[in-house]
Design a protein around this nucleic acid. Structure first.
Length: 421
RNA sequence: GGAGGGGUAGCAUAGUGGUCUAAUGCGGCGGAUUGCUAAUCCGUUGUACCGUCGAAAGGCGGUACCGUGGGUUCAAAUCCCACCCCCUCCGCCA
């Protein structure tokens, strides 16, 4: 969310970025209303000044009725004029804010310009796609055979794409969450537990609203939303705060369930655990000084990569092009794990720098040593999302006789070497 | 859900219609004193917007901001209404 002045002074740049991100904005209307807003402010402020002077005179001469009666009449006139102009100003500012709220964040200069996923750049590949001398089954087949996944019963309870994990499957979910959180705590992240329901304001601040309203579950009675990611509650932890420079950087790790309606996504990559309405995720969030945020993005990416390296799952890192960047993002890396059963790279993490975009909306500042305040930069990355990681484990660690070897790093948690019938 | 108390600049607190242009303390920043630290003393102090000057840092002039939004009034931190949040107690409840 940019201030009016910034938009006014950077119209060309913002128009270009909105185009790159395929976002429609009412630019002409903005210019017209912005001019009118400034005219009105000048009109109002002038009259307020006059009114103030009169008020002072009235106050001084309040004993002298004959003298102040005409003054009061004049002041009343100003008061009416101010009132009327302010009503118009309020309307105009609301309209302007609505227009501005649809202006997306500006991509960083290192982001490749492009339209769709074909223009993304693979910047790294890690691990080996091991050749197996047997046909690797997709996770839903082997998972149901082993009794650790149950899609039928999930849809009975709620609807399709609400999976059930059973027995060792449920234990695997719990173990992965603990493994990931333990890892991140060891590397300096502070664990937080936050609400999974949030208000409109919080979603606006992180940039999900106004654009993605239809993609979220909504509780009408209370005007709350179920979170699509822990990014929303964790980033809003410091809404309307002024942090101390010495407190930065702040690193948080949070486990939460995530809820996504995935409106219109049916039929595409939706089998098994690939795309579900409710899933678990361990999320990393950083609050940092602007001058360090791009270094912080690289270390955030490394932190997320560590999870896959320790699980020994082959993955690649993709730098998103401008057209694929989210509304609020300045730069974003996706991490995709190779899943040989479905023969696809599946996204398990998205690491983004939002620069000051979210901090402006959420009003999160910090005070520098010289006393000046500045907006923090916020970053977040999944560290990492569970269902697709589980796909990766089931499909990469599958044996010929239909068992799953437990990755070394999880054996401390699960106290077993293989998942078998 | 009910009753009462509260929300004032980074924090803590004062302020019940008109020099409030929001006081005071702490903290922060700058300086003085000083073997070191501490203490003391002096100065300074927020945010947003509009106009104007400037390449910029910023300067100057103005307006607004006392939880949020309305209302009364010539004039609101102060009076009235609604809502939000925090605290205490009661009720209900996993």
């Amino acid at each position: 969310m940019y201030p009016f002045k910034f938009v006014r002074e950077n119209l060309d740049l913002l128009k270009k970025t909105a185009e790159l991100k395929n976002q429609k904005v009412e630019w002409d209307k903005f210019e017209e209303l912005d001019n009118e807003r400034r005219r009105l402010i000048m009109f109002i402020e002038e009259r307020k000044k006059w009114q103030k002077d009169l008020t002072e005179k009235i106050s001084r001469e309040k004993e002298n009725k004959d003298l102040i009666t005409p003054l009061i009449n004049q002041a009343r006139k100003y008061s009416d004029e101010i009132n009327e102009a302010e009503n118009r100003l309020n309307k105009i500012e609301k309209e302007l804010e609505k227009i501005i709220s649809f202006i997306p964040n500006i991509p960083h200069s290192s982001v490749p310009v492009g339209k769709d996923e074909k223009d993304n750049v693979v910047v790294k590949e890690w691990g080996e796609k091991k050749e197996k001398n047997f046909q690797v089954l997709p996770h839903w087949e082997i998972g149901e055979k082993l009794g650790i996944l149950d899609f039928q019963r999930g849809s009975k309870i709620t609807g399709s794409f609400f999976p059930v994990f059973k027995g060792v499957g449920a234990f695997l979910v719990r173990s992965l969450i603990n493994f990931m959180i333990d890892l991140h705590i060891k590397n300096g992240f502070k664990e937080v537990w936050v609400p999974s329901l949030v208000n409109r304001d919080s979603l606006f601040n992180t940039g999900q609203l106004p654009k993605l309203e239809d993609d979220m579950y909504y509780l009408e009675r209370d005007d709350f939303f179920l979170i699509p990611t822990a990014e929303v509650p964790v980033t809003n932890l410091h809404k309307n705060e002024v942090l101390n420079e010495d407190d930065l950087p702040i690193y948080y790790v949070a486990y939460t369930p995530c809820f996504r309606r995935e409106a219109g996504a049916y039929g595409k990559e939706t089998k098994g655990l690939i795309r579900v309405h409710q899933f678990d995720k361990v999320e990393l969030v950083k609050f940092v000084k602007p001058e360090t945020s791009y270094d912080e993005l690289e270390t955030l990416l490394q932190e997320a990569e560590k999870v896959l390296q320790l699980l020994n799952l082959p993955y690649r890192v993709v730098l998103l092009c401008s057209g694929e960047l989210s509304f609020a993002g300045s730069k974003c890396y996706d991490i995709e794990v190779w899943c040989p059963g479905v023969e696809k790279w599946l996204e398990v993490s998205s690491c983004s720098n939002f620069e000051s975009f979210q901090a402006r909306r959420a009003n999160i500042k910090f005070r520098r040593k010289d006393g000046k305040t500045d907006y923090v930069h916020t970053l977040n990355g999944s560290g990492i999302a569970l269902p697709r990681t589980i796909i990766g484990i089931i499909e990469n660690y599958q044996t010929e006789n239909g068992e799953i070897i437990v990755p070394d790093v999880l054996r401390d948690y699960m106290k077993m070497e293989r998942i078998a019938i």
